[in-house]
Amino acid sequence: MESKAPVLINAVPPYGHVIASEKWRNTSLIQHLKGGGVKIIFENELGVSDFHLPNKSCILYISECDIIAGNSYKRKLVRYRNAGSSFQELVLVENTRLSEQYFSAVQKFVLFDLGLTLLPVSGQTEASQLITQIVHGESRENPFKRRSSSRLLDPLVLALVQQVPGVGRVKALALLQHFSSIHQLCNAAPAELESIVGQAAAQQIHSFFHKPTTADN
């Protein structure tokens, strides 16, 4: 069933429901959610967000087409980060055969430059499965949070940290073992980094993470 009700941008849907941007109405993702017993409230006024979930998290969905089309997705991500939402802001990114070559750059921008939580999905089917788990509370632990906390062990993240000037595999592993989140690593003081990787590498890492962020590079 679909529900139509006036909602606010920061509205939290009731248990068993998802608030979805109107543009998703005829998509396979919505059909899969309905098949999983999720009730949909369509709304035109969600701002940049695509979905609101009952656990006070919101989702921005970056598709394969968004990534391949160029850098416009970066402007959308910056608006999403700057929207001032009280929700936990999540970014679902399609990592497919066509978008795979761009994924490291997307991951760096989302995790390191913007400090948001990124969840790779193979497509709308997997995305609907994740959302359904949250809505129905099928796991006592939020699977978004679980995947978020384990992302530091992701080989892609390890490879990404090694792209920072002055950081090889050994230093990357040391950093990821010391810091509990990407956000902590990005905001670490030079002195804290120095105790792990030495003075020269610490300065390079700090400079790398504090370069100005724009939506157009």
Rank of each mutant, 00 (worst) to 15 (best):
N71C: 00
F42Q: 04
S99V: 15
N217E: 12
A5G: 06
D216G: 01
F109R: 07
C58S: 05
S128M: 07
D154Y: 12
S28Q: 14
H206E: 13
A83L: 03
K108S: 09
M1N: 10
S195M: 08
N142V: 00
L8V: 01
N82Q: 12
D113C: 11
Q177E: 12
K34R: 14
Q203L: 15
L53V: 00
A83Y: 04
S139N: 10
L152Y: 11
V161H: 10
S63M: 02
S99Q: 15
F87W: 01
N10T: 02
L114Q: 04
K39L: 08
V164R: 06
S72D: 04
Y61T: 00
E194I: 08
V135C: 05
A200R: 13
H52Y: 00
E192I: 01
R79S: 14
W24C: 00
L77T: 06
F109Y: 15
Q31Y: 10
I41K: 01
V7D: 02
S99A: 15
A69Q: 12
M1P: 13
L176D: 09
D50Y: 00
R75Y: 03
L156Y: 09
S104Y: 11
V110G: 03
E94H: 14
Q199K: 15
G36N: 14
I40A: 00
E64N: 15
V135M: 01
I62N: 00
L8I: 01
I41M: 05
F179V: 08
Y80H: 09
I196A: 05
G70W: 02
S104W: 10
G84P: 02
Q31D: 13
P120T: 14
S85L: 05
V48T: 07
R79A: 12
T214E: 13
D50W: 00
S122G: 15
R147W: 14
L176H: 09
N55G: 01
P212Y: 12
A189N: 09
K211A: 14
L114R: 09
T213I: 15
A200P: 03
K76H: 02
K4C: 12
V7M: 02
I182H: 10
L90K: 04
E89F: 02
A11W: 00
C58M: 04
K74Q: 05
E89D: 11
A127H: 04
I9Y: 03
V93Y: 01
T117L: 08
V164H: 07
K76R: 13
A105L: 11
A159D: 13
